[in-house]
Design a protein around this nucleic acid. Structure first.
Lengths: 216, 216
DNA sequence: GATTATTTATACATTGTGATACAAAGCACA
DNA sequence: TGTGCTTTGTATCACAATGTATAAATAATC
């Protein structure tokens, strides 16, 4: 090589594009499948076929974090999975709190997909006096006024918002106030959060509303 | 192209970027709020503040479809909302079918957010003999072998996948086979669909897995 | 051990998307 | 009617993201 690049793995000094970060979990998912299928090695082409992404795209994404592959061979499945999990912070578990224990909140806390991936819902909150005090899916529903306290006590890093739209922004504000930096929002609004807080929306209606464009 | 481009609203001759289409429902949502707050006029700046999008971005997005604003004034809220709904195909209702009536499917059919936006779930399917024949949320659960028939009879245009991951691809294939062109997928996989079929995934775990990168 | 097959990592080119800047158009009000 | 203020629509620019091409490294085969 003309350039003597001593690329430092995993502790990049310049910001990795958001789109890249969002693709990494897809890679992890496929690697996990490959791994449990007993495969030892995977090429960027095989990964790309599964995900409908060009091999070069995948190689470039990975190159932001280091050099993981072997030329002529591909990537060691177990090693790459481990590395990507570490990069994403998936080599540990995360505690979450749900606010809003109506229909949607109940569905979320009983969704069996979180725990196997290391996301554990440790606390549930609501404003309604009818719901506070109840036990739902093994969680004692507390008044939202106890949020900050619980966040500290239970080391909660993730907030999940399942309240109706007209209370969503204030709940989000309360989460931010309580020191939560990652929020998953199920309410159909465009929330405002300060710098340093990441928020992602889950909104099936929005998805449907953009799909109809193509079939109208 | 040599012809003088007399910009025809709403029936554009060149493809509108996907990202633009995905922002339009956000505009519709804010316009609806403004409208019910009694506002008559909105500027691209006001819209932008709500959505954290630059005003110029919004004006450019809208310009793909025509000229809707008045210089020095802004956009007529009701008119712009009507236009965008028409562009997106939201000036009518859409029938959907859910496949997979386990925990997730039940939550989806009882989610009250679809109907007000014109998305009506008209049919429910499952493979399990224990579930087929039951009535859930007013829907008679049918065997998936009847999918194609129902799609035609009930004019179903949207398929919603809520089966476990190991059956998801075959269900998606069956939907495509039945002539469905828009699919909302809740199963955690990267599905394969032919050209001409739009599929969107709802995957909270994926969202969480990319958020942890920023707090790890 | 030499030769051929692969496949990565990356330089380079192309495309896509978002931001900036401003002329033209409309409004308000004297 | 004229003047100043606002806001759109769009031309232009800047940069982010993706795709193409290839040298270097490894493995497999004879």
């Amino acid at each position: 090589m003309t350039t003597p690049n001593n690329t430092d793995s995993s502790s990049s000094e310049f910001p990795v594009p958001e789109v890249v970060i969002q693709r990494l979990p897809l890679y992890v998912r496929v690697l996990t499948q490959y791994s449990s299928a007993g495969e030892q090695v995977i090429s960027s082409e095989q990964l790309g076929i599964r995900l409908q992404i060009t091999p070069a795209q995948i190689r470039k994404d990975l190159s932001y974090f280091g050099r993981f592959g072997k030329q002529g061979r591909g990537y060691d499945v177990a090693m790459l999975e481990r590395q990507l999990r570490e990069i994403l912070g998936l080599d540990r578990t995360w505690n979450a709190a749900v606010v809003g224990m109506g229909r949607l909140g109940r569905a979320v806390v009983s969704y069996p997909g979180f725990a196997p991936e290391g996301f554990n819902i440790r606390a549930a909150f609501d404003t309604s006096e009818y719901i506070v005090g109840k036990t739902i899916s093994g969680l004692h529903v507390q008044s939202i006024s106890l949020l900050t306290e619980s966040v500290k006590e239970l080391d909660i890093k993730i907030g999940i918002v399942t309240v109706p739209i007209d209370h969503a922004q204030e709940v989000i504000d309360a989460m931010v106030q309580a020191g939560i930096k990652s929020i998953l929002n199920y309410a159909p609004l465009s929330p405002q959060v300060p710098e340093g807080v990441t928020i992602r929306g889950i909104d099936p209606v929005l998805s449907l509303q953009s799909m109809t464009y193509y079939i109208r």
